[in-house]
């Protein structure tokens, strides 16, 4: 498995901490998911923040703070600075949002913010589209992980552009790639892993399932299945049938 800024992760699942029915269910879902990374955010202080932080410290996972909801380079960079101090990590999931209906990244702001943060020593995990040229720019400014979306955040639509994601995989064989956003079902996660992706980042598909703990387990199995399948070199598909049972030796009847 590739390393994420020098860190080898035990599992290819990264799980968000938002939208769960209760903190207890979130804790059980994390156990069931075997996630190696938890995404977190920063919001205006209220009494809930401290309790959440204490709970995070009991989780045996790496924290990946995000800049969710930032629409400008300055907001994203300031949020990253605050996250680095508060969570004591150089990891940052960089989101610079360009459009409020689709929550798709602003590619221009994303590259600008990534350049600033990489220069300042952050380990940037950019939430991006599957655009190859944008991905190249992000690598040029110092990103060593790319996180293309599968579909809009929270939509559960799966991999909208498998061709684009496959191209990205072939084009960047050595950069860890994570499908971040849009995953709705374990089969979507398995599909991304079968394409050779290194990890999956999801939140809503588990948190908003009727039984988040069972769904977390289903995702853990799917990610492992997809990863193992990729490593096993899948067969090439073909248009015409090819008998699997030997033709020679069939009885003449």
């Amino acid at each position: 498995m590739k390393t994420f800024y020098g860190v080898e992760l035990d599992s290819a699942l990264m799980l968000g901490t938002a939208l769960y029915p209760s903190p207890a269910i979130m804790a059980q879902a994390f156990d069931a998911s075997k996630a190696s990374v938890a995404t977190v955010s920063l919001r205006r202080e209220n009494s809930g923040g401290q309790a959440f932080r204490e709970w995070l410290q009991t989780l045996n996972v790496r924290l990946l703070p995000n800049t969710a909801g930032c629409y400008s380079v300055k907001e994203a960079v300031t949020t990253a600075h605050m996250a680095r101090e508060l969570f004591d990590t150089t990891w940052i999931k960089l989101e610079v949002i360009g459009q409020s209906d689709t929550l798709q990244p602003d590619p221009f702001g994303l590259v600008d913010a990534a350049r600033i943060l990489c220069d300042e020593g952050f380990d940037v995990f950019p939430y991006t589209t599957e655009d190859l040229v944008l991905a190249e720019r992000l690598v040029e400014v110092g990103c060593r992980v790319l996180m293309p979306w599968g579909a809009p955040i929270g939509s559960g639509l799966g991999l909208n552009n498998p061709y684009g994601l496959r191209s990205l995989r072939h084009y960047f064989p050595d950069i860890p790639l994570v499908v971040d956003a849009g995953i709705g079902l374990p089969s979507h996660a398995a599909q991304a892993m079968e394409l050779g992706y290194d990890a999956i980042l999801l939140n809503t598909a588990v948190a908003k399932a009727g039984d988040p703990v069972a769904m977390a387990k289903a995702f853990a199995l799917a990610v492992e299945a997809g990863q193992t399948a990729y490593q096993a070199s899948p067969m090439e598909p073909r248009d015409m049938a090819s008998p699997s049972t030997p033709v020679i030796g069939k009885a003449w009847l």
Binding site: G16, L19, T39, V40, R43, R44, E45, G49, F52, R53
Partner: peptide, 10 residues
């Protein structure tokens, strides 16, 4: 003045 704390996020 903005004062932020750790919160749930995706």
């Amino acid at each position: 003045v903005e004062v932020v704390a750790p919160m749930q996020g995706g």
